[in-house]
Each structure stands twice: as C-alpha cells, then as structure tokens.
Amino acid sequence: MDGDRITLLGGWSPSSGLRHFPRAVVCPFTGADDVEEVVLAPPGYFGPVPYGFGVVELDGSPPLRIVTRLQGDDIHPGARVVLAAEEVPDADGNPLATWVFRS
C-alpha cells in the first residue's frame, strides 16, 4: 500500500490452477496444499451493485470474482472500476487500512 495506491494480494495454487482471496492456508476450492502469494489485478467489474456492495471480476483464467465494497456514481453491471486504498475505523476507532473499488 502506498498512499491511496494499494495492491490486492491473494493466493494461487499451481496444482489446481486457481486463485483466491484473501490468501488462505490451502486452496479453498480444492484443498491443495501448495498455495503461493499472487498479485490480483483489478481489471473490471461484474454483476449487480446494491448500495456499494458487489462483485468484481478480476482478469485471469479462470476469472476470479471477489465480494467488495464499491464507490462511485456510475456503477452498473459491466462497468469498469479501479482498486483504491481507504481507511476505516475499527471497533476502537483506530484506523484500519482496507480496499475499495471506485468507478
């Protein structure tokens, strides 16, 4: 994370050929025990957007879809969005770094 620039890191299992987010101990789809860290690019958006909460499809094969918060006025199925960093307060009011996709 650098200012409002943020990189979304996930996991990748060479044996299953599948990525996931956030990185887990084993591949959450197959149970394969060979997970490596991978950078997940945010190329576009997939699906409906109810109140800043939706599904973004990341490039790659097969595509990986992640549940995320969304911000912007021009968000609709098929819209493209950009990954950005954001701070939110935790339960004690301390800043917590997180991500958001913006139109």
Binding site: G47, P48, P50, Y51, F53, G54, V55, V67, T68, R69, V88, P89, D90, A91, L96, T98
Partner: peptide, 16 residues
C-alpha cells in the same frame, strides 16, 4: 476487520 470494512452485514449479502 471484515466488520470494520463493511464486509459483514447480512442484508448486503441477501441483497446481492
């Protein structure tokens, strides 16, 4: 962290 980041409310998942 999921609660703080707004990634936990059940109605949001229901709505999706």
């Amino acid at each position: 962290w999921q609660e703080a980041a707004g990634l936990s409310p059940a109605p949001a998942y229901f709505a999706l």
